[in-house]
């Protein structure tokens, strides 16, 4: 352990307004939620001498609120809380499944949805699910509030589009207009539990009565610097029937949307093959 506690300044705002104000005063402060990522770097001695904006006392950000058209997840809601919530379990099962794959119990009890997004890892476990549920990230900052669609929140590896002084206050999950015909989340990690993903898939499809695909939302994590919605594939499939031919064509299109790499956890080749397999199997209804 190489962190130096006495070199650190802790700022402990008690409300959203105070958090924004304090952050404006100390813009170099590191926002701290559950600490499951920040503390790893701190333990390695990489953050000595920094100020930390400890958000854990902002009680209003800890709540899950079910509202008319969706669910509002306070940014400090933990992965464990999400898994336990009955409405989320029923309406957003892919997100619940994703949260169950974040680390293990100890991490799920501490890691937060807002922290996960702010951290912007290419392998963020909740992102493919948030992408296909078309979540909105609610942000508060010195110039007030704004809503950022999930598709616009990430700027690159470990980078968000948050502006200086902005903090995530909530993630809004809109209820889908219609219940999806089929939905799957699948994480392929380095081992059976407590793993970093090599690839992650989330998919929702809505089939019309005539058998044509009314809509599809498909996303992969860990295949590019940020989570990738497969817009080209979705557009191609809309209005088509799912046949071997259309599915094969969709799988071909997928490679245009992703750019996996070789790294210490896997290879580009494996990530592509497996992701393609998952997409095809999902469209065929063969993956649970």
């Amino acid at each position: 352990m190489r962190g130096d506690a006495k070199s650190m300044t802790v700022l402990s705002p008690r409300s959203a307004a105070e958090a924004v104000k304090t952050y404006a005063k100390v813009p170099t402060a590191l926002p701290l939620a559950g600490g499951t990522d920040l503390m790893v770097g701190w333990n390695l001695g990489q953050l000595n001498g920094r100020a930390v904006l400890d958000l854990s006392r902002v009680a209003e950000w800890r709540r899950i609120k079910v509202v008319g058209d969706g669910v509002d997840l306070g940014s400090l809601v933990t992965h464990a809380q999400i898994q336990a919530h009955p409405v989320l379990r029923k309406r957003f099962p892919l997100l619940v499944a994703a949260c169950a794959t974040v680390g293990a119990a100890q991490i799920q009890n501490r890691g937060t949805i807002g922290g996960n997004i702010a951290n912007a890892s290419p392998a963020g476990d909740t992102f493919p699910a948030l992408a296909v549920y078309e979540a909105t990230v609610r942000v508060i900052g010195p110039n007030g509030r704004r809503a950022v669609p999930m598709s616009e929140i990430f700027a690159g590896v470990k980078k968000t589009t948050l502006k200086p002084g902005e903090l995530i206050e909530a993630v809004f999950l809109p209820f889908p207009d219609q219940t999806p015909t089929r939905g799957v989340f699948r994480k392929v990690g380095t081992r059976a539990a407590q793993a970093i993903s090599k690839t992650m898939f989330a998919g929702l499809i809505w089939t019309a009565k005539n058998g044509e695909l009314a809509d599809a939302r498909l996303a992969f994590g860990s295949l590019a610097p940020t989570v990738k919605r497969l817009y080209a594939v979705e557009g191609f499939l809309r209005g088509r029937r799912l046949t071997d031919v259309s599915i094969a064509a969709a799988a071909e299109l997928m490679t245009n949307d992703v750019s996996p790499i070789d790294d210490i956890r896997s290879t580009r080749e494996y990530r592509l093959i497996v992701s393609r397999n998952l997409l095809i199997a999902f469209l065929k209804g063969e993956v649970k």
């Binding site: 352990m1 402990s12 600490g35 930390v52 854990s56 100890q106 501490r110």
Partner: peptide, 26 residues
């Protein structure tokens, strides 16, 4: 010191957590 091994697990308000990833102020 990475939150991977769980050897430092304690219960915080009854829930298991990695005590190597929690500043005592929290």
């Amino acid at each position: 010191g990475e939150g991977e091994c769980g050897a430092c697990t304690v219960l915080l308000d009854g829930e298991p957590v990695n005590s190597c990833l929690i500043p005592v102020c929290q």
